[in-house]
Amino acid sequence: MIVVEQVGPLATIQDLGRPGWFDSGVGPSGAADRSSLRLANRLVGNPEGHAAIEVLLGGLALRAEEHATFAVTGAPAPATVDGTPVGHASVLELEAGQVLRLGYASVGLRSYVAVRGGVDVPPVLGSRSRDTMSGLGPEPLAKRDRLPIGPSPRTLPTVEFAPVAEPPADLVAVHAMLGPRDDWFTDAAALFDGVWEISTDTDRIGARLDRRTGPPLTRKDKAELPTEGVTLGSIQVPPSGQPVVFLADHPITGGYPVVAVIIDADVDAVAQARPGQPVRFVRAVSGQDPAGHA
Score class of each variant (00 low, 15 high):
D249G: 09
R34D: 06
F185D: 06
V159E: 15
T158C: 15
W196K: 03
A61W: 03
E65V: 13
F192D: 03
H293G: 00
T12G: 00
A269T: 01
T132Q: 07
L94N: 07
N46P: 12
V258A: 08
L43H: 06
D15F: 03
P215Y: 15
G74A: 11
D249H: 12
D33I: 04
L10A: 03
A40S: 10
G59V: 04
A61Q: 01
L62H: 00
P28D: 10
A52Y: 10
H175L: 11
A271S: 11
M1G: 13
M177I: 12
G59I: 08
L43T: 04
P239C: 13
V270S: 03
R283Y: 06
E139P: 04
D221G: 01
G59A: 08
A11G: 02
L191E: 01
F22M: 13
R219M: 00
G49C: 00
S129Q: 07
G20Q: 09
A273K: 01
G8R: 02
G214D: 10
A68F: 13
S90K: 07
A189V: 15
R181H: 15
V107E: 08
K143C: 00
D182R: 09
P157T: 02
G194C: 13
D268Q: 06
Q242W: 10
T12I: 07
L141V: 10
D82G: 13
I252M: 12
A165M: 15
A96T: 08
A271R: 03
L125V: 15
A273E: 02
V55I: 15
L16K: 02
L102M: 05
V285R: 14
R63P: 05
T69Q: 15
R128V: 09
D210Y: 12
Q242P: 02
K222T: 15
Y112I: 04
V91I: 14
R208N: 06
P47C: 10
R219Q: 04
R219Y: 08
G135H: 00
Q98F: 05
